[in-house]
Design a protein around this nucleic acid. Structure first.
Lengths: 206, 206
DNA sequence: ACAACCATGTAATCAGTTACATGATTTG
DNA sequence: CAAATCATGTAACTGATTACATGGTTGT
């Protein structure tokens, strides 16, 4: 069993799903492609953690609906109490922030502004989902949606905080422009943003 | 060239490093083990993106100090202007949050509280690094440290926001306890936190 | 004494992505 | 008429982790 396996168990703990549905559901928790999910489901079924029922459909391809077994539920419950391993984040944006100072101010601002747009779009999209989730969990089906409700709120809070950070960075870049000296103008001409920032810090100290 | 390669270029763009140093430096931007870094350095050197100099040491193993070449700098600059691909986050904690409602309140609270401890520790550690970084960049070496300064602040802001979220979740759990009815007590006895939360939402509506 | 730090490398394995393969139905 | 949705699977490949291998120095 690997983490994807536990992610599948946690999804099926709420409601039986097809592999196709799982791929969509897991995207917010532990993203995985269908090519990773289908073989994993087969393995877990062979280990008695899941069972499936074949559903014949007309107009749509047939599907397998997977449910969690008692053994699966036990396995999940035991794993949940163990302390989670450190999160893994890989974000190209961070590398670009780290090295944008080699290029000019225009590109630096664009990088940050594009990030803001991306984040705002995601937040807007997620806010809709949260509203839907809120409507769903004021009934007996609530327990099925409450975890997701918490998780979507978490992401939105953190994304909004990243937007604030982006704005702080933009301010720093623009302030360097504001206090522009002849030296800074020369540095801008030479595309030396690193030197401009140096100067900016110096000026902001005064 | 893959993303790790660009991460290496961005690190060497500031100062020449050994593979060993890179592994530590990259941890905050694009974590990688030495077993991934060393072969990559060799490949990049063969492609003319890097050059190295062997430094013979006494009392310590010899090392190779890698520097970025003009070709490397050009490659990096071109890549930086391209829009970054979506960040990838894999966090077991999220799966556990999603499925803790199968277990009891004690375990739910522990999961969140442990997360708070983890985050607080990381924030404290990072705050020290930020102070160091601030002292370093009020001189001519600033440009070497400013990107990291921004990135460490970003992580700290977001981690603090996650702590707030954790506290919000703890409040929700505790509020369900506060408004405890006989029904809730039974549910607690039966370890049905999902039902408690259902009830909690109902009560908070009043 | 034992762990941690410095320093580099390879081999085996596991995880994840992209591409190959099929095919009807619905929506813009 | 093209694209998206529904639905499942395998194969080839790239990326990442763990383990194997070596060995002196410094601090507890």
């Amino acid at each position: 069993m690997n983490t994807l396996g536990y992610a599948i168990l946690s999804a099926l703990g709420r409601k039986p799903c097809s592999g196709y549905e799982l791929a969509q559901y897991l995207d917010a928790v532990w993203p995985a492609k269908h090519s990773q999910i289908y073989p994993r489901l087969t393995k877990m079924e062979q280990n008695g953690l899941l069972i499936f029922e074949e559903v014949i459909q007309t107009g749509k391809p047939d599907k397998k609906i997977f449910s969690i077994t008692d053994k699966g539920r036990e396995t999940l419950e035991k794993w949940v109490t163990e302390s989670p391993s450190d999160p893994i984040m890989r974000d190209e944006f961070l590398i670009k922030v780290n090295s944008i100072w080699l290029s000019d101010e225009e590109n630096a601002k664009k990088l940050i502004q594009d990030r803001i747009s991306d984040l705002e779009q995601k937040v807007a999209f997620r806010t809709d989902t949260i509203t839907e989730l809120e409507q769903k969990h004021r009934g007996d089906t609530m327990s099925k949606h409450f975890g997701r409700y918490l998780l979507f709120n978490r992401r939105n809070m953190m994304d909004k905080e990243e937007i604030s950070w982006c704005q702080w960075v933009l301010n720093l870049i623009e302030k360097s422009n504001f206090n522009m000296s002849k030296l800074t103008l020369w540095m801008l001409g030479a595309g030396k943003l690193n030197l401009i920032i140096q100067n900016m810090i110096f000026v902001s100290e005064i």
